Amino acid sequence: MSVDVAWSEQPGVVVLPSGASVRGRRIADVASPADFALLLAGGPAPAWAHRRIRWPDFWVPLDRADALDALREALRRAHAGERVEMACRGGQGRTGTALAALAVLDGLPAERAVDWVRTSYRPRAVETPWQRRWLRRLA
């Protein structure tokens, strides 16, 4: 018998400044269904609606406009009450950067984004100086 855990209580779920919840995870992890996934790496696609952006490991998105459009779509869906998730190979660098970017797009000052995601999600989220610089340039 499986127990349905509330979305807000699942591992990797963070609460954005507006109160919307978003889950971060590794692509390969078995996860309960979401309504929409933003995939930040190659790997298996979930059975639910998803969008993939080109984002090399340890780097920043290759197409800034596409990445911002995808992040804004994810944020709109989260504000509408959908279960939204971000996922990359390790669930840390790209996923952490994407979660921090969502928080900035949601109103968090860019200079607080890295500390926020490291406190809210994972202590080593946002792994590289260029990921931090990319976040500062979102504002």
Rank of each mutant, 00 (worst) to 15 (best):
S2L: 13
P109Y: 02
F36I: 11
P109R: 11
D35T: 10
L135P: 04
A110P: 05
H79F: 05
A70Y: 01
R133I: 09
G81N: 09
R72A: 14
P44R: 12
R51F: 06
P46F: 01
A101S: 05
R64M: 08
P11I: 00
G90T: 10
F58G: 06
A87I: 01
R64G: 02
I53G: 07
W116N: 00
T97G: 07
A125Y: 05
D4M: 14
V15S: 14
R52W: 06
A31W: 02
V126F: 09
C88N: 05
A125S: 11
A78P: 10
R52C: 09
R23A: 15
V15R: 15
P44H: 04
A28L: 14
V22C: 07
R26V: 05
A125T: 07
T119M: 06
W116Y: 00
S21R: 11
L135K: 02
L75T: 08
H79Q: 13
V15L: 13
E73D: 13
A37V: 15
G93T: 12
R133N: 08
R136A: 14
A125W: 00
W134L: 04
A74V: 07
A139V: 12
Q131I: 13
V13C: 12
A139S: 13
L39K: 09
R64L: 01
P61D: 07
A80T: 05
R133L: 12
W7V: 06
V22R: 00
A100P: 01
E73Y: 00
P129T: 14
Q131V: 11
R136C: 08
A113E: 03
H79I: 02
A98E: 03
R122M: 10
R23Y: 08
L39A: 03
F36A: 04
A65I: 04
A113D: 01
R23S: 08
A67Q: 11
G19S: 07
P17R: 13
A65P: 10
A47Y: 11
G93I: 09
R133C: 03
R136W: 04
D57P: 10
A139D: 15
